[in-house]
Write a protein that binds this DNA or RNA. Structure first.
Lengths: 215, 215
DNA sequence: CGGCGATTTGAATTACATCAATCTAGGTGG
DNA sequence: CCACCTAGATTGATGTAATTCAAATCGCCG
C-alpha cells in the first residue's frame, strides 16, 4: 500500500502555468489548494525576519506539494517554466467523500514529506558539505530519471542549492569543481552536466596522486 | 480553527507506562497507533547505518506523536518515566467515521509537526550554536510552562540535546556554562535550573567588562 | 565505598564562512 | 548582428566557530 498520485486525476482541477522565477504562493497567504507538478521544477522555502532563507524542498514533475492546510507556512516558486495541476481543497474533500482510499492517500503523501524532511535534517547535522552535495546530485538524478553516463540537468541556482543544503554558495561552487575533478560530473553547459556516478572513488585516488605530483 | 487534542478522548484508548530510557517503538517496526504524552517526555529519533543519531523532536505532556502510518520512520524513547495514551489506528478510523472534525484534526496535527520541522531545519542552517541553545532552553521553558524566575527542568541528556541541535555534546556543555555566565540560567541541580530569560542582554555586557578586567 | 556513565574542561585542528575581486553567459537595445 | 550590461558563478585569501581528542571530575546506584 503506497502513495498513488494518479488517484487525484478524478478530482476536479485545472492546469496553470508559472514562468521561471514566479511565485506560485507566498508564505503567510491563506492556503486553498494542493498542487501537482506536471512539468518543470518548484522550490519550497521559508524566510525569516532577518532575510535569511531556508529552502525546504525541490519538487519535480509527478510530485504533489502544499504547505499548510489553512495558511501557507512556506512560499513556492517556479525554478523553471512550470506547468501545474491545481486541486482546490473543496475538490479534495469531494473526492474523499467519493473514494475512501483518497483520504489515506493524502495522509500517506503528507507522511512522505515528513520522512524526507526528517532525513534531510539528519543529513544537515551528520554530513559534511561534500557529502551533502554528492547526495544532492544523486537525488536530482533520481528525481529526473537521469541515466548514469547521460545528461543531468540541475536547474536551480547555486544560491538555491546553498540555501537547501545549509552551506554558502561559494562552497557549493567549489564542491561542484571537486566533483568534476573526481570525474563524477562533467560540465557540458551552465546547470547541465554529464553524470558518471560510478566514477567517484577510483578517480578520486588518481587525482590525489596527481595533486601530489603537481605540488 | 486549530488543533484540539481533547477531541481524541472520545476514541478508544488505553494508558501505558514507559520507564526512563525505554523504547516505545522502534524505527522500521510496523506502525499501529498514535500516542499522546500524559506525563513525562519522549524523544523521537532516527539512526543511520553509520550509528549516528538525529533527534527529530522532544514531545512533552499534552502533545500527540506518531512517526509513520504504516512503518515507523523513527524510534520513540521515554526520556523520563512517562505515561502515554495509546490510540490504535482502528480507533482513529472509527472516530473519524463518527466525527468529521476528527479527520481535519489529524491533518492539522500532521501539518503542525511539518511546520515545526521546517522551522527547525532553518534554525540548524542559519543560527550558530549559541542561538540554538538559547532557543532550545526558551522552547523547553515554554513547553513545560516554566515561569520566568522559577525552576526549569531540562530532563534530556547533553547528548540528546546535541543530537537534536546538530552540535557536539562538549559544545552543549560549554554553551550551558556561557548561559550561566549571562545570568539567564543558574544551575540548582543536574538537569535543573532557575530560569531568568530577561537577564540575558544586560548581564552579558557586565560579563564582558569583567572578562577584560580579568585578562 | 567503588565503579561507571555523563559531564566538564583544555588544547589543537579544520572545515567552512566571509570578504573581495574577477569572470561568464544570456539578455537587451542600438 | 554586435557590444554592452547585469546577475550569477567562480576563485583566492583570510578568519573563526565548532569539532576532535584527551583527560579530569562529578554524581548516581548498586
Amino acid at each position: 500500500m503506497s502513495y498513488d498520485p494518479q488517484l487525484l486525476d478524478s478530482a476536479s482541477h485545472r492546469l496553470i502555468a508559472a514562468l521561471r522565477g514566479k511565485a506560485i504562493f507566498h508564505q503567510g497567504d491563506p492556503a486553498s489548494a494542493l498542487y501537482r507538478v506536471e512539468h518543470g521544477c518548484v522550490r519550497l522555502q521559508i524566510g525569516d525576519a532577518a532575510g535569511s532563507r531556508q529552502v525546504i524542498a525541490f519538487v519535480f514533475a509527478g510530485q504533489t506539494f502544499c504547505a499548510g492546510m489553512e495558511t501557507h507556512w512556506a512560499s513556492a516558486h517556479a525554478i523553471t517554466d512550470t506547468v501545474l495541476s491545481r486541486f482546490p481543497h473543496v475538490a479534495l474533500w469531494d473526492l474523499v467523500a467519493r473514494d475512501s482510499r483518497a483520504a489515506l492517500n493524502l495522509l500517506l503523501s503528507a507522511d512522505e514529506l515528513l520522512t524526507d524532511l526528517a532525513h534531510h535534517l539528519g543529513r544537515m547535522s551528520h554530513s559534511d558539505a561534500y557529502e551533502r552535495i554528492t547526495w544532492f546530485v544523486d537525488w536530482v538524478a533520481k528525481q529526473t530519471k537521469a541515466p548514469p553516463g547521460g545528461t543531468l540537468d540541475i536547474p536551480m541556482s547555486r544560491h538555491d542549492i546553498a540555501d537547501f543544503l545549509g552551506i554558502a554558495p561559494e562552497t557549493v561552487s567549489r564542491l561542484f569543481r571537486r566533483m568534476e575533478s573526481t570525474g563524477r560530473l562533467r560540465r557540458v553547459a551552465p546547470r547541465r552536466f554529464s553524470y558518471h556516478p560510478s566514477a567517484a572513488a577510483c578517480i578520486a585516488v588518481q587525482t590525489e596522486v596527481g595533486d601530489q605530483a603537481a605540488a
